[in-house]
Amino acid sequence: MNNKTQVAIIGGGPAGLLLSHILDLHGIRNIVVERQSREYVLQRIRAGVLEHGTVQLLRQVGLGERMDREGLVHDGTLVTWGENASFMIDTTKYAGRPMMAYGQTAITEDLYAARDRAGGVVLDEASEVALHDVTGGQPYVTYVRGGVAGRIDCDFIAACDGFHGIGRQSIPASVLRCYEQVYPFGWLGVMSRTPPMKDLIYAHHERGMALASQRSPMLSRYYIQCDIDTDINEWPDDRFWEEFKARLPKALADTVVTGPTIEKSIAPLRSFVAEPMRHGRLFLAGDAAHIVPPTGAKGLNLAVSDVYYLSRAFDAHFNQKQDALLEDYSQTALRRVWSSERLSWHLTQLLHTFPNDTDFARKLRHNELLHLSRSEKALAALAEQYAGLPY
């Protein structure tokens, strides 16, 4: 089966579907190729804290109705350490940009619904995907679906296929440069159908960080820092709740509404950036190009900003016959990527405990937390970055 389109999009997660949706609004033909089934994609439990820029973009492209109805707007995140010490990273006060809790699964559902309404082509359960002639004038994608080989001829390929996808692997090692920091711990996370805590909360504790997040008025997400080799079967619900509450000040712990968990998983933490994000007619976006530790809530938001820059560049190319934005895509996207990488790395260093921590390191960490609690200028600088830089 042969198809021809203007942009072939590899990966049917939020980045690929959002790019497909925006290109369609600009009259740019595209086909999405996804190796998993729709049901599998929708079962992924991922991020849920949206920057103001992400919220605005989703509204601008007609995807804000459900988000505005079900999402939880909040001014920032509360940071606690010790029994009585805390401060608020108030993005509304210091940056004029509130955040919103709205799960990635819900965003993906909204995107699939939008693509269905528009008659968008999403080829799921496609195996043996390969990219060809990405530096020539006629790139194409091959795949196998339902036992039948297929080919998509296109002008450009957008790889939105995640960290392990074929997109980045299609760039020669002589061209690609990767930067990586792997952290010596993970996050044990649970989802529960319980009302979330009033604030998003990061809690620094001698046994490790804890995080209370939100998804909807009756859906909560909680995490605790754990060893990288932790066996999830050793963490029944009762043990998780006991440990989570032990890492919070008692006044906050007493407000936690516990209940049976509906999902439980362990996520490793890493920082990763691949440069450049363009090779010939191949463009990387989202996790295909970069990974951030979830401490800064930047992963999904970075994918959205990549899509914004890339869709703008394709619009300029196809509809305005201008290629400057395509030429500058990698450099433009990477400026925001590295800013978010730095913030996520900084918060990870600040809020976690490390196996090789010395007393000196612990004292420095506590001193910085104290400084942030007492300096409005320091807190304002942190809030500006946490809110997400403008596109």
Rank of each mutant, 00 (worst) to 15 (best):
D287G: 03
L219V: 02
I228E: 13
S265D: 05
L284V: 14
P236C: 03
A289D: 10
R312C: 04
A210Y: 05
Y222I: 01
A313K: 14
A251L: 02
I232T: 11
D306M: 09
P260H: 01
N233H: 08
V307H: 12
W241L: 00
T261L: 00
F318T: 10
R239E: 07
L282E: 14
P294G: 08
T261G: 06
N319M: 00
I262L: 00
R215S: 05
L282R: 15
H279D: 14
H279E: 13
A288T: 14
T261N: 06
Y308A: 01
P293V: 06
A297S: 10
L325C: 09
S271N: 08
T295H: 12
P260N: 02
F272I: 07
H317F: 15
S220C: 06
Q320P: 01
S216H: 08
L248D: 06
K245Y: 07
Y308H: 14
P294N: 06
S271E: 04
L300D: 05
A324H: 15
A297M: 07
Q225R: 08
M218S: 07
R247W: 06
E242L: 07
W235R: 03
A212C: 06
D306F: 14
P294A: 06
D306W: 14
C226H: 10
V304C: 11
T255H: 11
A267P: 01
I262M: 00
L282C: 11
F272A: 06
A253G: 11
L269S: 03
Q320G: 01
A288W: 10
Q322V: 02
G299M: 10
W235P: 00
A285K: 14
N319G: 00
T258N: 04
R247E: 02
R281F: 14
